[in-house]
Simulated assay, not measured.
Amino acid sequence: MSYENLIVEQKGMTQVITINRPKQLNALNKATIQELHEALDAADKDAQTGVIILTGSGEKSFVAGADIKEFADFDPAQGKDLAAQGQEKLFTFLQNLSTPVIAAVNGFALGGGLELAMAAHIRVASDNARMGLPEVSLGVIPGYGGTQRLAQLVGRGKAMEMVMTAGMIGAEEAQSWGLVNHVTTQEELMALAEKIAGKILNNSGNAIAAAIRAINANYEDGVDGYAKEVEEFGNCFGTPDFKEGTGAFIEKRKANFRS
């Protein structure tokens, strides 16, 4: 499938999805959100894709935010619909994807861009990355899950400060806060993401999908995360991957989960 705003490359069992709107610093518009939904959905359903790496084109920006021109004249009802549809179509959809997604944050990740990175399962950043949620400087708040995921990742106090000051933080500070997992140079960013992807690919895809569901359950209202863990743990026993993994351990050989 071809896309207007994305570049999709397959590298073995890793698929790299690059947001490609460099003149707009890869800002998210409605068309790009729709294309990301379609590309992520296709990758998740592709048996030959075990990990997805999500990044932005160029060296300046991962995603510099949402395309403000698209909603500057919206009324309250339209604003609510924009946030609800965006969360359902992309941000919540991405968080709940069965295939692990690594966000390779190169440069600016602001507003919707940081919200996109936070919806991914793992984040790595280049040392020139700058992250923030500047929405209050525009008279609005983050609407794509930013107020929720930021507090989950860095704690309520730091989230309050970042949102209320509309400020940006650098990659090293983001790592110290727990907002990103790893920081490296711009030149080594994709290599690091691919290295992590390679480690993930050594393991059971079925078990990884179950782990994603169990971990996410901890953040869902009215859901007992421990009960979800028990359910997913038990379900693993009925999979071919469980038989392969335990058999390989007993036979002292390397498991082959992706034959």
Rank of each mutant, 00 (worst) to 15 (best):
T147L: 13
Q186F: 09
G157E: 15
M190Y: 01
M164H: 10
E135A: 02
A84F: 06
I215L: 14
I53T: 00
T147P: 05
N106R: 15
E232Y: 11
D44H: 08
D67G: 03
A117M: 02
K254H: 10
G111Y: 13
A31M: 02
A197G: 12
C236E: 06
P22T: 08
E4M: 08
R149E: 10
A43D: 04
D46A: 04
I19Q: 00
G107K: 11
Q48L: 06
E35F: 04
L90F: 10
L110P: 00
A248T: 03
N96H: 13
E229I: 12
L153C: 11
G155D: 08
K252A: 10
Q10F: 01
A39E: 09
N235V: 03
A214T: 14
A109Q: 06
Y226Q: 07
T32H: 12
G145S: 13
A125G: 09
G113I: 12
A129F: 12
A191W: 01
N26P: 05
F249K: 01
I17F: 11
E38P: 02
I250P: 02
E161I: 15
N181I: 04
A151Y: 07
E59T: 03
A125C: 07
K199I: 08
M1S: 12
G56D: 04
R156I: 07
P76I: 00
L192Q: 06
G86Y: 15
R258M: 10
D75R: 08
V223I: 15
L189Y: 05
D224K: 07
A171L: 09
I208S: 07
R130S: 15
D224H: 01
L82T: 09
L153H: 14
V163W: 15
A209K: 00
E38H: 03
I169H: 15
I17G: 02
S137R: 08
R21T: 02
I68H: 12
G111C: 13
A209W: 03
D241P: 02
K158C: 08
L189E: 01
V51K: 09
G155C: 04
K89G: 06
N106D: 11
F74Y: 15
V8I: 11
T246Q: 01
A109L: 05
T32I: 04
A211S: 12
